[in-house]
Simulated assay, not measured.
Amino acid sequence: MTEIKLKEIRKSYGDVEVIHGIDLTVRSGEFCVFVGPSGCGKSTLLRLIAGLDTVTSGTIEIDGEPVNNVSASSRGLAMVFQSYALYPHMSVYKNMAFGLENSKMPKPEIERRVREAAEMLQITDYLHRKPKALSGGQRQRVAIGRAIVREPKAFLLDEPLSNLDAELRVTMRKELAALHANIGDTMIYVTHDQTEAMTLADKIVVLQSGRIEQTGAPLDLYNNPQNVFVAGFIGSPRMNLIETTAVDGPEGWTLTAPNLSVTIPKVDGLTDGARCTLGIRPEHVRVGNDEIGHTTSQVAFAEQLGGETYLYCNVEGLPQITVHQPGQLPVVNGQTLALSFELEDMHLFDADGQVIVNRVAG
């Protein structure tokens, strides 16, 4: 297994810097996911690690050895692309064996590796088919199998599921998680889909504009976002974020916004009249006024999914508030509802978007 370390990595194209001094360690055997919106630099960072692009400054180390001047083919890494990149005129077997044949590996060893990978990925029955005779999910398995047979130091996967339909993506997520558990190798996975990040990762790296916003385990990022960007990006539906003004009072801080007033215990980091952002996840908004932060809303849209309900509620002067409740709620579009927040699950961010406190009553 392999450790990959990035030290003050910068990448520029001409005068435009797109990666801004990134420091990161991917531990041996870790499933690390780079996540962020389009254009945040996650695929560029992966290509730098792979050696497909060169760094402008900084050092990339693989198992403690600098590899800046080592070619992509000599880094011992295997990359799986979004587009599968299979040879259409070759059988599945030949696609998986091609790189090994070029390296003059003995045929019995090639046969062993291809057969073992095919069995692991459940594509043994397809070894003599051409890619055009396979489904999207089967083609992606072949692309992953082609990487496995190389027995690389680490796997780099660039949005490998984005071309699949929704149901197949769920299936392939399970298969990738099982594959990592089985082989235990270091994997770095790029996606813009935070659901993939949450379900696959040991560690998530949240990127924005070529910088790391936060790194940590999935639930740590979900429960303890360090800024407004991470709070809004991690979680589906996204966290409700409401700009408020803090007012000092005898019972604590009162956070005020149009048609909303929330009183919380005293916390450090606020001054009277300070602007701050209140965050509350959709599952912590309650229908009714028996909690704190009671406000009146009108349901703009209700999604009844059988086992759960999503409500998108309008409050005059506030951003639309999303509510997620288990089970079925007899609510219709246009209905007036009282909403309330759970005090212990509120998050508070300062005027610069940095966290003041997660779980204000925690």
Rank of each mutant, 00 (worst) to 15 (best):
M105L: 15
Y84E: 08
R75K: 09
Y93Q: 01
D63S: 13
K107A: 14
H89I: 04
E61A: 04
D63N: 15
G76R: 02
E65L: 14
I60P: 04
P88V: 07
S73N: 13
S74A: 15
E65V: 15
N95V: 03
S83Q: 12
A85K: 06
L100N: 01
G64E: 09
P108K: 03
G76A: 01
G64A: 08
Y93R: 13
S71E: 14
S73K: 15
D63I: 10
V80L: 11
E109I: 06
V80N: 11
D63E: 14
R75I: 03
K104G: 04
T54I: 06
A72Q: 13
P88E: 06
G76E: 00
K104T: 10
I110P: 00
V70A: 12
S91P: 05
Y93D: 00
T59H: 09
V80F: 12
D53M: 07
Q82Y: 06
E61L: 15
E65Y: 10
G99Y: 07
T54F: 08
M90D: 04
K107S: 11
I62S: 08
M79C: 03
M96R: 11
T54L: 10
K107H: 12
S73E: 14
V70Y: 07
G58A: 12
Y93N: 01
M96I: 07
T59D: 15
D53H: 11
P106V: 03
I110A: 01
